[in-house]
Amino acid sequence: MARFDFTDHSTGTIGASFTPSADVLFQMGILCASGRDGAVDLVAAHMYLNLADRGGAEDAAYHRQQVAAQMTKLEIAKALRAAREWIAFH
């Protein structure tokens, strides 16, 4: 099982929002796309890769396109909506 290190203590405030790095989001997208830790979830993979690309991860856009090629338009719309909600929350 993959392990992610979310221990960035730089904010130091109670209730501070946490935003994982682009590299962590990229790895989460790859895990969701590959199904290594469970079932393949292309919607989640697209969402994480989209967020990683937004954060500056180098290969995220390429992998997002590869995932999108396997999805329906409805699934892509759902992934984009989820990414917008994630941004609003974090």
Rank of each mutant, 00 (worst) to 15 (best):
A2H: 07
V67W: 15
Q65L: 14
D53I: 05
R3E: 00
D41V: 09
M71K: 14
W86T: 03
I30G: 10
N50Y: 14
A88Y: 15
R3V: 07
S17K: 01
A79I: 02
M71W: 06
A16R: 00
G12F: 00
I14Q: 11
K78T: 01
G12A: 07
A88F: 02
G56N: 06
F18S: 02
V24L: 07
T11L: 02
K78P: 08
R84V: 05
A57F: 13
Y62A: 09
A82L: 10
G55N: 04
A16P: 05
Q70C: 01
R36S: 15
N50G: 10
T7G: 10
D23L: 02
D8C: 01
V43G: 10
G29M: 07
M28P: 03
A16W: 08
M1D: 04
A61V: 09
T72W: 11
L42G: 10
T13N: 13
S17V: 00
S34Y: 14
F26Q: 06
L25D: 01
M47P: 14
G35P: 06
L74N: 07
Q27W: 11
L42C: 11
K78I: 04
D23S: 09
I14N: 01
A77M: 15
L80K: 13
M47G: 13
H46G: 08
K73R: 15
L51K: 12
L74P: 12
V24K: 00
A77P: 15
R36D: 12
Q70D: 07
Q27N: 15
E58P: 11
A83L: 05
E75P: 13
E75V: 08
A2W: 11
A79H: 14
A45C: 11
Y48T: 02
A57C: 08
L42E: 09
A39T: 14
L42K: 04
G29N: 04
V67G: 09
A33K: 11
A88D: 13
Q65H: 14
G55Y: 00
L51R: 13
D8H: 02
Q70R: 14
N50R: 10
A60N: 14
A45S: 09
S21D: 15
H46V: 10
D53N: 13
I14A: 06
T11Q: 02
G15F: 01
F26E: 06
D41I: 03
G55W: 05
E85L: 11
H63A: 06
G12C: 05
A61G: 07
Y62N: 10
K78N: 08
T19G: 07
P20Y: 12
L25P: 02
A45Q: 04
F89R: 08
C32K: 09
S10Q: 07
Y62D: 10
D5G: 04
H46S: 01
L74V: 08
A60L: 11
K78E: 09
G12K: 03
R64K: 13
R81I: 00
A79F: 05
S10F: 01
G29I: 06
W86K: 06
T19F: 05
F18L: 04
S21V: 02
M1W: 01
D37P: 05
